[in-house]
Design a protein around this nucleic acid. Structure first.
Lengths: 211, 211
DNA sequence: TTGCAAAATTTCAACGACTGCAATCATGTT
DNA sequence: AACATGATTGCAGTCGTTGAAATTTTGCAA
């Protein structure tokens, strides 16, 4: 057992990274559907069969860093500060998720945007991402209810998490699809959080003042 | 040209229904993954190849009644009543969606619950459903922004739709997974709408009054 | 009624994702 | 140096999906 985990483990890690990087590169070059599993395996110099001992399927290569963000968010919710309110805690969680930039350690930084573009572009990946996000929300709701025992039931916690995440998600996607630069995307999320925290009625008041 | 649309069209409709019903029955009996496309096609007495001239893929049979609900919701948003507020309009849309029971005309009523159970159970179908819902939300947000020209920008409309749908979705799923009967599921959605409309701060106030 | 053009169905071949299994190879240990 | 264990591989096979060509069915007109 030398280094961290022995030669065996280190080799596995290297192969794994090679698979991810090779896949991302190929996807960027030729497109997701057009890239074959055999090509990905070849790019990492393993057999097609071996690919499946690293990932459950083609889609999974993209989500190699899947639950990193989630775990931190759940932990944050779990470590509620004394006297902290539901809103304060949720807002803190959202802010943390937004500021978490580095997706994976030791991965070519050029490949980060590729991953994002693929997830937003390829329907199969989009669907998978939404599923992962949904499961995350369920865990967050449970964590939130646990953080406010006797004050917040599971339904209310679900409503709170679903509202703030749902609003952020749709607002962000709208901004992105519109071609907004990153700053405006963040601004959109902040506005979404504002609306969710203050309630949809604030939109009505705004329209009355304007009209 | 007898009946509605001629013999040709009527036959196509019958085959389509046969495919949907046969598929749902088989899925209920043997499970989704375990059911083969060949079996589905055979149950409707067509060749496997022909299946694909009715549906784009195996998943699509389940979502045969896909955009019915959506279209009505978009129309409802589009026909804003004079003086109606954002909240009133959105709440009306949610209520309409909840009360829309009959999923498909002329389909064996036993198969409705089967469809729901499959969508909630099979990951691939769950993911697909979330994708469809996401696209729906984008359309709803556009419709909402259009209904309040000059008062509501696209980002705010997205935030509003995302919040109310996201809260309803997660609250409903939480209730369902907990085993709540339909009435309690509706109650959960109503509570979610309430929280979203009033704002998440109402949860803080509640906790302060209680604690 | 017959005949023809368009539309629908079928057959066939092929590709890619994925899985089980048995054989082989590498690694870490005694 | 030999062994046990785990990783990798090749192979055969299933299933979803697609393209193309051949065949059948239907709608319509003469």
């Amino acid at each position: 057992m030398s280094g961290e985990g022995g030669l065996r483990a280190r080799k596995k890690l290297r192969t794994r990274r090679a698979l991810v990087e090779g896949a991302l590169r190929l996807f960027a070059e030729k497109g997701y559907e057009e890239t074959t599993l055999a090509e990905i395996a070849a790019s990492a110099e393993v057999s097609t069969r071996t690919f499946f001992s690293y990932f459950a399927g083609k889609e999974d290569v993209i989500f190699f860093d899947g639950d990193t963000r989630l775990h931190r968010a759940v932990e944050l919710i779990g470590s509620r500060r004394p006297g902290e309110s539901v809103v304060e805690l949720l807002v803190r969680a959202i802010e943390q998720s937004l500021s978490a930039r580095p997706s994976a350690v030791g991965l070519d930084p050029v490949l980060g945007p590729v991953q994002v573009r693929l997830i937003m572009t390829v329907p199969a990946l989009q669907a998978r991402a939404l599923l992962l996000l949904f499961d995350s929300q369920q865990q967050l709701a449970r964590a939130l209810a646990r953080a406010f025992p006797g004050e917040l039931d599971l339904i209310e916690a679900s409503a709170a998490v679903g509202a703030i995440v749902g609003a952020s998600k749709l607002a962000a996607m709208t901004a992105v699809e519109r071609g907004d630069p990153p700053e405006l995307v963040y601004a959109a999320v902040r506005r979404a959080v504002e609306v969710t925290v203050g309630g949809l009625t604030t939109l009505d008041r705004a329209s009355r003042l304007t009209g």
